[in-house]
Amino acid sequence: MPQDQKLLKYSSEYSDELSLDDELKKIRSCIQCGMCSAVCPSGSFTALVTRKIMRKALAGDHSVLSGPEIWYCSTCFNCYERCPRTIPVTNVILRLRNMAVREGYLPDNLKSVIKNLANTGHAVPLGGPDSKWAKLRELHKLKKVPPTVHSFPEALDELFTLLDKIKFNARIPYR
């Protein structure tokens, strides 16, 4: 068989990690009935197939972390509500996101959010003193710049201290 052909090599790496949590451990009893996918609103419009996410996580398939699908979940909890084996599907996806980030996987649009945070201290920054948000604030007789990191640039250092502490830059380079 040619070496470049993709072959699944099962590993319990991900399911072992998920099993450290008593609730998330239930993923192991997934019977692949597909009910979660059937009611997934995001799955109707995106490539998100929750059933496959569960299966890939159990099989230890790396593509579950490297792929974009887990980020399409809108965390509506429809799947969580209906799973016949009471698997917290949404929570599993959230944990998989954590694991993906730890491995350095994050979609580009989310990376820019991180960059915003690093540069301004806000995931959704105000956009400078002349932005429409600043004008709107003025109209309502508020300070142009809110009393957040925007007003206290030195607080940004504290944020960097925290982010450095968890070695965030090593995982998702933000500066």
Binding site: M1, Q5, K6, L7, L8, Y10, Q32, R55, D61
Partner: peptide, 11 residues
């Protein structure tokens, strides 16, 4: 072949 993922496996 893992019929749930539609992928071949080798173990």
């Amino acid at each position: 072949s893992d019929t749930l993922l539609a992928e071949k496996y080798e173990i």
